[in-house]
Every structure is written in structure tokens, then in C-alpha cells.
Design a protein around this nucleic acid. Structure first.
Length: 897
RNA sequence: GGGCGGUUAGCUCAGCUGGUAGAGCACCUGCUUGACGUGCAGGGGGUCAGGGAUUCGAGUUCCUUACCGCCCACCA
């Protein structure tokens, strides 16, 4: 028999075991019509990213589900892969180039992409190898990348389809512009942050009346781009100004005063300056009143100048599709300043001219880029959009009808809210790393052709075409992930069999980015849902409850935890005490506790193995004793409830129950009891004990395997009669033939009694080495007779006499009382009569309290008539037990005199 | 301004469809019990944030208040 070390050493086990699993091909899953499919697609981590705790939890939960389903006999497929993460990756590559003094422009598109791919090759494997460290049983033969050939094909196909259906369009719209990343981003990618700012009250003279119109703004630098001033049509204060004009200070430009609901009478002075090119609301106002748009900021956040104006004018003149492009202003003395510099300068000039009335401090929410946290600049810009309204309806319905279920349910509200209010999705990015937009512009006729197949000449006039420079939002390709990874748009067998996938596991922070987009995409392109359940988890926070972040430097590296404690300990920590949708804290203490459990299990296994003789044959013995029946019955309940919890995605509860069983039931009771038979000298009894020990351990390992794959495999393989791997064994189901309710109840009486003796002895400071004889008086002697051997060991008895009734001498006897029995233990020299009285009286009070409580409940007419019979019966039994206990205590008290 | 979550033992958190409050850690007391001191046995500690309602019965359902946190929203 294999000798196990005293301490479990994960480092010695994990890599070797993982390599073996891969080699044996256990992770690979194929279409198998004789099985039911179960599939998960992994939320693709950024290809150049590194594993963090959030991933670790996400992947652990998925692996638990996949391993569980695989053992249940499903064709369980877990598709892994990575995301090209356009902005994040491009930013990294650009930063690296900067160190070498290079810019994107220096290299050109092709040169840059060459570098980006090289970067991907260099770092792309990192996250994958980290996933392997965690023990993820993904099908690596199917690993995908959002920019691989198949995914790219799906992207182009979808783009063309949507365009042909009129669901993708190009136009000049207000978009969120990140001056740092130099690209547009979608609404979902904007994060709002509270910023200290000011509220500047400006004065614009009215041309017709000469009065000064006061208005307030948080962004004075955009005033050069004002093209109107708005008042509320119903505002009596300004009724006389309808149809009038103001003179824009500094530029001396005449602007109309327009009436618009947007001007809120309650706010400020009720007058708003309108800058359609730099404010989303103003953009809408501008459209309603057909106002010109004047752009005063460049795409890198500086004030526009003569050159910018010339360039824009040329573009407007040449490109027919750009009729809705804004004008560009030559900001003159302000040209080239950053927005901040311009603000200072313009304010100074306004003040000098008497146009600045006052400055009021103000904190307000400012949009920032979710990647770099630069304040985003609302800009009118020509971009590609997905029309959301036609797509949102079915997507909402899919959840509302229950075809797709969020776990926990409450997240469907988030989802509805976002879906119902979402605006058109800006999908073009001014980046090079990503899927290039398949739109081609004819250099001669100016026509736009969208084509999944590359075009070189215009299908209409035959002139050369040039392709759109922009790429697609990363999330556009990840939205297709559940089906693009299975071969769509081809009609593959994989798609037919594994799709729709079953469970999507992800954090609540990307429901809007990703989950919602997968849902409407799947419904639109595959005419099916992408998955039936979305299992949501929360954030992993640090021990103080703070979000782990780079800037705080409080991130905990999962790989370090794996190195120090093992992957199994990390995994268990990430499920124990977790609840779907709720954040959890990660701490060293928790990992240590998990590590300790691994060690506990390891040693239990070590004990079992060292007791197995050569030629041992596994299997249940023909004869089961009381403790066997008890442990098997408990195991049955465990199988039932763990399966139940897993089906309901209550991973934390499931793990907790398995752990409790192994530690409390198996180790602390069953192994200890089994030692009696192992050492009894009766080979038949010893063999029976071994068989049950191995049998139960085997089942427990299987139940634990999804949570702690490595250690369970290592132990499993050491068990006699085991197969080649635990991960391909059958998930344990409860066996009704092994339910022994009556024996469980009997055993519980013994346990009660043993605990009572232990408590009394601990209370009296009796050394374990001191043993005594013992008389047990009970109305139901059977269990105590059956359990005499156990009592000898655990109740420290030299010999046990079981009687119906004991009426002998009680002097010098310690009396132990449970509801089922009274024990008499001669310990003359240790007895303090007063203490005994106090102890027994305390027991008496407890019993009386219970009797009072249960009695009151049963005396309640309403309870007896309305509560379910089982509950009433339960209470009756509890009352009876309390009464028995009271009777026993009273007898003992009487005996004490 | 809406929406959501949290508030349970000193700390971290479980507690499913309502039926005498649980775990881990910490703390206290014992134990060199040949699997394990990363352990064993025992113990103390909670009016389940406050108020109200429904119910025979509420940590668990409903309303409400307070505090903490998150998400969403175009306050110029």
C-alpha cells in the first residue's frame, strides 16, 4: 500500500495530476448522442491579461459545475478562450512602443498589427497556463480567440447581416470620446465619477433688448461652440424674449434664443446655453431646432485651430456622406490649448469683458473612460451604430418568459432596466487592434458597400475602394461567443448538439457589457437563446472589504495563494460562504482553514490506507453494524442534499455540507468508532470496518471532487479497486437500500449520551486516562446494548451495565442525564454535592423551559389545527423527549437527596 | 432622482419554498487519545438594525425608518 506523507503537499501533486488529465483526454468532449449535452462557454479573459481573484472565482464555479455534470454522465463541454480586448491590448502595445520612442503612425497600420500579434503571441499563453494551475477542466482542444479565423468570420457575417437588415447604420452622432485612448466608446463603457467642479454664471447680452441674460455652465470652454440659448416656452420670466437673439461674448456672434423643454425652469436661471457639438442634450436640442453644430475641440482634447478647420472643410466638401458633420471653428488665440487651459483663458477674458457674474463651487458626476479613467468628451463624430430598439424587445422577452433565468433572480431587473433604456450601440472604435469594419467606400462614386468578403473595386462603378479605417468594439465579437465558438455561421454538429449552452457564469459587473449583448445577438442570429441560466457572482474583495485594485495595491495574486496553499484550498475558499450575486471577502485565515481541511482529509485517507492489508477487496460487507448503518444513512442524506444544492447553484452550501460530513461525521465519529473494530483482533469485524471506511471515503471523495479536484484524485487513485481517475467516475446518488432511519435514531441516542458524559467529565476536570464502571438506566436499552463497545471508548467506561431501571445506591455517583437515559458513574472522590445539584438543576430548568414552550405550542388550538401534521408531530416528539429528560433529571435530583 | 444589496455570536459569513438560531476564525478549559496539534474533547457568547403588519407561528413574507455599500440617470 502506498505510503502517504504526514502533511499534504499540493505542489507535489497538482501539476503532475493536471498533466495526466490532459494527456488522458478527459477534458475533451465530443458530440455523443447517447448522452445529454451540458455546455459552458468561458467568459474569455483578456488575451494579454493575468489571472486575478475575480477570474479565479469565476473559473472555479464553472469548473465545479462542469465536473459535476461530467460525473453525472453528461457530455460536459467547457469551451475556453481569450478575448482580444481591443482598447486594453492596444493601449499596452502603444505604451511599449512609446518606450522605444515609436508611435502608431510611425509604424503604420500593418507594422502596428504585426507588433500587436507578436505581443499576443508573447503574452497570450500566460493566462491560459494560469487557468491550468487552478485545475480548470476545459476542453483545450477547442480553445478559441475572438480574433481567430472562425470568430472573425462570424463577426463579418453578423455585420453584413445586420447592415443588410438596416440594423447597423453609420452616422454623425453624439458619442463618448476618450481623448486619451483616442477612440469613441459605448455608453456602457462610461463610468461616472464624482468630481469637484464649478458652476460659472455667464452673462450673454440680448441683441433686441440690451438686457443681460444670465445662464450657468460647468463647461465654459465650449461656449465658443454655442449656437443658441434655450429658455423654457412656459417660463414667464423670459416670455418677452421669444424670437430674440443673444450676442455670444468673445466671438460677437448672433445666436437665436430658442424655446425648448430641455430648459428647466426650476434649475439655475432657467436659461441654458446650447452647444450641440459637445453636449448630448444640446445635440438633441440642436436637432429639434435645426441648429448648426460647431466643433471646438479636437479628438485629442485641444481647441481647434485654422488647420483643423481647413481639414474639416475639405472633408465636408469631398465626402458626400458627411453632410451631417459639424463645422469646425478656428478658435484663434485659444487654438491648440487643452480644454483646461482654454477654460482658464476664456474665463479670464469673459471676466475682463464683464460677462462672468459669479463662480459657484459644485460637485457633479462626470463621465470617465472605464479603461483609463480619463474624463470623456461628448463629441459629435461619424461612427457606426447598432440600432437597439428592434433587438431589445425579444431580448427582454427571453428573460421575462423564463427561457433565460438569472441566478439570483433579482438581476433580471438590472437587465430589464438597461435593455429598456439603452440607446443605439456605438460599435466603431478608432483603433487598429480588432476586427476591421467591413465597409468599403468607393473613391469615385462615394458609395458605401458593406461586404463580408473583401472588396477592391466598387461593385457599382468599378473604381477602387478603400476600407473603413475603424475596428469594432471588443464586445461586438464577444457577443457572439456562445455560438461563434461552436462553429457558427456554419451549421456544425457541435452547434446542433451543444447549443444553446446551459450555464453562463459571470460577475454582475458585466451584465450590461456582455450578457445582454449575447442575448440579443443570439436571438437575432441563431434564433435561439445563448444559454438558459446566467449564474451571477459578486466581487472578491480584500480582507477589509475593499475592492481589489491595481492603484490600491491590495490585489491578492491567486497564483501566490496556489503556491502557498494549493489550488484546492484556493478553490474551496472561493465557494465556501459565498452566495450567488453577493460580494465576498478574501482573507488569509479563510485559505488557511481550507488548507487545513485538505490536510484533514489527507490524513483521514492516510489512516484508512495504512489499515488496508494486501489483497483487500473493496465493497460493502454482508453484515453492517450500527455505526455502519448510521454512517451510510448519513451519506445518503448528504448525496441528496448536495445534489439538490448543486442543481440550485448553491455551491457554497453544497461545499459546506460535504466538508461537514467528511470532518464531523466521517473523521470525528466514524473513523474513531471504526478503530474499535480494526483493533478488536476479530479479523471479520476488522475487514467489515475497512470495507465501510473505504466505501464511504470513496463516495465522499467523489462528492468533493468538483470542489477540490486535485487532492480527491490523488487519494482516489491510492484507494484499492479504484479506476484510473475520479473525474470520470459516476457521481454518487443516494441508495434507498442504505437508508436506516431507525438505526440513525438509535445511534443519535448513543451520541447524546456520549456527549453528555464528555461534558460532565470536562466540567469536572477528569483526566481521560481515568476510566470507571458505568450503569445506564433506560426505557429503551437496545441501542445501548448494541453500542456498549462505543461507550467503553467514548464514555470512558471500564464496563457498562444496561438496566431498565436503577434503584440502587446513588451515593458517590455522578449522574448523567439525557432524554433517553440516565447514567450512573462512580466518581466518589470527585463529587462536589453542591456542584452536582447546580448542574442537574440547570438541566432541569432547560427541560422545563422546553416543555413549557412546546406545551404552549401544542395547547394552541390554531397551531394544532392549522400547522402541517408533520410539524405538529415533530413538536409532540420534542415535547415527549423533553418530558423524558425532565423525568430523568428529577429522579436524579431525588436520588441526590 | 430612481433601483438594488447589506445590517444575524468579538471578526468573516451561511441560513432553500416561514416551524425551538448555525459554521469557520478568535476566545476560555482540558488532552503528547500511535491518521492529523494544519489535531481532539468541552465551553462561553446572539431580544437575527429599529418600528409596524400578516400568520397558530417570522431571521425567513409585506410595509416603514435608520445606517453602510453598489448600480443606473442628459441636472445645464
Amino acid at each position: 500500500m502506498k505510503e502517504l506523507e504526514k502533511l499534504y503537499d499540493p505542489a507535489q501533486v497538482e501539476d503532475r495530476t493536471y498533466a495526466d488529465w490532459v494527456e488522458k483526454g478527459y477534458f475533451h468532449t465530443q458530440v455523443d448522442r447517447s448522452k445529454k449535452p451540458y455546455s459552458i462557454v468561458m467568459p474569455p479573459p483578456n488575451v494579454t491579461g493575468q489571472l486575478h481573484m475575480g477570474h479565479a472565482m469565476d473559473e472555479t464555479w464553472q469548473d465545479i459545475l462542469i465536473r459535476y455534470k461530467r460525473m453525472q454522465g453528461y457530455a460536459a463541454l467547457w469551451v475556453p478562450g481569450t478575448d482580444h480586448a481591443s482598447i486594453a491590448t492596444e493601449a499596452k502595445v502603444v505604451a511599449k512602443m512609446k518606450e522605444e520612442g515609436l508611435t502608431k503612425e510611425d509604424l503604420g497600420r500593418d507594422g502596428f498589427l504585426e507588433r500587436a500579434w507578436a505581443w499576443k503571441e508573447q503574452y497570450g499563453g500566460r493566462i491560459v497556463s494560469q487557468l491550468k494551475k487552478l485545475g480548470c477542466s476545459c476542453d483545450w482542444e477547442r480553445e478559441r480567440f475572438t480574433m481567430d479565423e472562425g470568430c472573425s468570420k462570424a463577426v463579418l457575417k453578423v455585420f453584413q447581416q445586420l447592415y443588410d437588415k438596416g440594423l447597423i447604420y453609420r452616422g454623425s452622432r453624439m458619442v463618448n470620446w476618450c481623448p486619451h485612448c483616442r477612440t469613441s466608446i459605448s455608453d456602457a463603457e462610461v463610468e461616472y465619477a464624482e468630481k469637484e467642479g464649478s458652476f460659472w454664471h455667464l452673462l450673454y447680452p440680448v441683441k433686441e433688448t440690451g438686457e443681460m441674460l444670465e445662464l450657468a455652465t460647468t463647461r465654459p470652454e465650449t461656449m465658443l461652440g454655442d449656437t443658441a440659448v434655450a429658455i423654457n416656452p412656459d417660463d414667464p420670466r423670459y416670455a418677452h424674449l421669444h424670437g430674440c437673439h443673444v450676442i455670444l461674448p468673445l466671438l460677437n456672434k448672433e445666436l437665436p434664443i430658442v424655446c425648448d423643454e430641455h430648459a428647466d425652469m426650476e434649475k439655475g436661471t432657467g436659461v441654458v446655453k446650447i452647444t450641440p457639438a459637445h453636449d448630448p442634450n444640446d445635440f438633441e436640442v440642436g436637432k429639434r431646432h435645426d441648429l448648426p453644430m460647431v466643433r471646438v475641440l479636437t479628438y485629442d482634447g485641444r481647441m481647434t485651430g485654422a488647420a483643423d478647420k481647413a481639414e474639416a472643410d475639405e472633408l465636408r466638401a469631398s465626402d458626400r456622406a458627411s453632410a451631417d458633420e459639424p463645422e469646425v471653428l478656428d478658435c484663434g488665440k485659444y487654438a491648440g490649448m487643452t480644454a483646461q487651459e482654454a477654460r482658464k483663458s476664456i474665463l479670464a477674458d469673459l471676466e475682463a469683458g464683464g460677462y462672468l457674474k459669479e463662480t459657484e463651487p459644485l460637485t457633479h458626476e462626470v463621465g470617465t473612460c472605464y479603461r483609463c479613467h480619463t474624463v470623456i468628451e461628448p463629441m459629435v463624430s461619424k461612427q457606426w451604430f447598432v440600432k437597439m430598439e428592434p433587438l431589445a424587445g425579444p431580448a427582454i422577452e427571453a428573460v421575462r418568459s423564463g427561457r433565460i433565468k438569472f441566478v439570483p433572480e433579482r438581476f433580471d431587473k438590472h437587465y430589464y432596466h438597461w435593455m429598456e433604456n439603452t440607446r443605439d450601440w456605438c460599435i466603431s472604435r478608432q483603433l487598429w487592434w480588432g476586427h476591421r469594419i467591413p465597409a468599403f467606400y468607393c473613391d469615385a462614386c462615394g458609395k458605401v458597400h458593406v461586404s463580408a468578403e473583401p472588396l477592391t473595386t466598387c461593385p457599382d462603378c468599378g473604381a477602387p475602394v478603400h476600407q473603413d479605417e475603424d475596428t469594432l468594439d471588443t464586445w461586438f465579437s464577444s457577443a457572439l461567443w456562445p455560438f461563434s465558438t461552436l462553429g457558427w455561421p456554419e451549421k456544425t454538429e457541435d452547434l446542433d448538439y451543444f447549443y444553446p449552452t446551459n450555464t453562463l457564469v459571470t460577475g454582475y459587473d458585466i451584465i450590461t457589457f456582455w450578457v445582454s449583448r449575447m442575448i440579443f445577438s443570439a436571438l437575432e442570429y441563431t434564433d435561439n437563446i445563448p444559454f438558459d441560466t446566467v449564474l451571477i457572482h459578486g466581487l472578491v474583495r480584500d480582507a477589509q472589504g475593499r475592492k481589489m485594485s491595481k492603484s490600491l495595491g491590495n490585489g491578492i495574486d491567486p497564483l501566490e495563494i496556489i503556491r502557498d496553499y494549493g489550488a484546492d484550498a484556493l478553490r474551496l475558499t472561493l465557494v465556501l460562504g459565498s452566495t450567488p450575486g453577493n460580494d465576498m471577502r478574501f482573507s488569509d485565515e479563510k485559505v488557511k482553514a481550507s488548507r487545513n481541511f485538505a490536510n484533514k482529509l489527507w490524513n483521514a485517507a492516510r489512516f484508512v490506507l495504512m489499515n488496508l492489508p494486501e489483497g483487500f477487496e473493496a465493497g460493502l460487507p454482508a453484515e453492517l453494524d450500527l455505526s455502519d448503518r448510521w454512517v451510510l444513512s448519513q451519506l445518503n442524506s448528504l448525496c441528496r442534499s448536495v445534489g439538490d444544492n448543486l442543481e440550485k447553484f448553491e455551491l457554497g452550501l453544497a461545499a459546506q455540507k460535504v466538508q461537514d460530513f467528511i470532518w464531523d461525521v466521517y473523521c470525528d465519529w466514524f473513523i474513531e468508532i471504526a478503530k474499535l473494530r480494526l483493533n478488536s483482533g476479530d479479523e471479520q469485524h476488522a475487514d467489515n470496518a475497512r470495507k465501510v471506511l473505504v466505501w464511504v471515503l470513496d463516495k465522499a471523495l467523489k462528492l468533493l471532487h468538483p470542489f477540490m479536484p486535485f487532492i480527491t484524485e490523488e487519494i482516489y487513485r491510492a484507494l484499492p479497486g479504484s479506476g484510473e481517475s475520479i473525474m470520470i467516475t459516476r457521481w454518487p446518488e443516494a441508495d434507498p437500500a442504505l437508508d436506516f432511519a431507525a438505526d440513525e435514531a438509535d445511534f443519535a441516542k448513543l451520541m447524546d449520551y456520549i456527549k453528555a458524559v464528555r461534558t460532565v467529565r470536562a466540567d469536572m476536570n477528569v483526566h481521560p486516562a481515568k476510566k470507571t464502571s458505568m450503569i445506564i438506566a433506560t426505557a429503551d436499552p437496545e441501542p445501548f446494548r448494541r453500542g456498549q463497545v462505543y461507550l467503553a471508548k467514548f464514555a470512558f467506561a471500564t464496563d457498562v451495565t444496561v438496566v431498565d431501571k436503577y434503584e440502587g445506591d446513588t451515593a458517590g455517583m455522578v449522574q448523567v442525564v439525557t432524554h433517553a437515559a440516565r447514567g450512573f458513574i462512580p466518581m466518589m472522590e470527585l463529587i462536589d454535592r453542591e456542584k452536582e445539584l447546580a448542574r442537574l438543576n440547570k438541566e432541569k430548568a432547560l427541560a422545563e423551559k422546553e416543555i413549557e414552550q412546546f406545551g404552549r405550542q401544542l395547547a394552541n388550538e390554531g397551531f394544532v389545527s392549522k400547522a402541517p401534521a408533520k410539524v405538529v408531530d415533530d413538536i409532540r416528539q420534542k415535547l415527549a423527549r423533553a418530558q423524558d429528560k425532565l423525568a430523568n433529571v428529577e429522579q436524579s435530583l431525588a436520588a441526590l437527596g
